[in-house]
Amino acid sequence: MDQEFLKVKEGIYNNACDDIIKNYSLFKEELCFYEGLLLRGTRIIIPAQLRKQVLAAAYEGHLGIVLMKARLRTKVWWPRYDKDAETLVQTCKGCTFISAPNPPNPLKRRELPNEPWVDIAIDLMGPLPNGDFILVVVDYFSRYKEVKLLEKFPV
């Protein structure tokens, strides 16, 4: 059995105070041992040497901090597990790489132009599988669309 668990067990049954079990003392009424497992209510308290593996399993799929904590809260517990989960997510290189540093600016409605062809939008789509492109021009006043196929020039 884990040394920390032995000290917690001793602290629960003998009211012994140790620096290690101070993190468990707030939940003393919720803790119990069942067949060698330390439980807090219906959740299993994970020994220190297994916590990294449990965090990795809960973080599978890189779902983010909120869903990871929700996964953990349903089955397991240990002191400061929220902090451990946050640290894991914040140090994940993949997640920090793809997360946007700033949220996008909110969309703003454009003012309707006073006459046709004063304000237009142009977009080029492609290349298509055959190498061609599609040019789209939209007039903001009339919403008229002009679509042209730009064929690939032979080289």
Rank of each mutant, 00 (worst) to 15 (best):
H62F: 01
R110P: 00
K9S: 10
T91W: 01
K145F: 08
N102L: 08
Q53E: 15
I20G: 05
L128E: 07
L135E: 07
Q53F: 10
F33K: 05
L26P: 10
E30L: 04
R71M: 07
G126Y: 05
L88N: 01
V138W: 06
Q53A: 13
G94Q: 14
N105V: 12
I20L: 12
V136F: 00
D123Q: 05
N130G: 04
L107T: 03
V147Y: 02
N114S: 12
A57L: 08
Y13E: 15
G41T: 06
I98Q: 09
L149M: 14
D19Y: 08
L31Q: 00
Q53I: 00
C95M: 03
C92K: 12
S142C: 07
K9F: 10
L38F: 06
V155Y: 11
P101L: 11
S142M: 09
K22L: 13
P113L: 10
N102W: 02
V136C: 11
L38W: 07
F5M: 13
N102P: 05
E35P: 00
D123F: 03
F141W: 07
A48E: 15
Q49Y: 10
R143E: 06
L63C: 03
L31C: 06
L63T: 08
T91K: 12
E86S: 05
N15A: 06
G94E: 15
A100H: 13
A100R: 11
L39N: 09
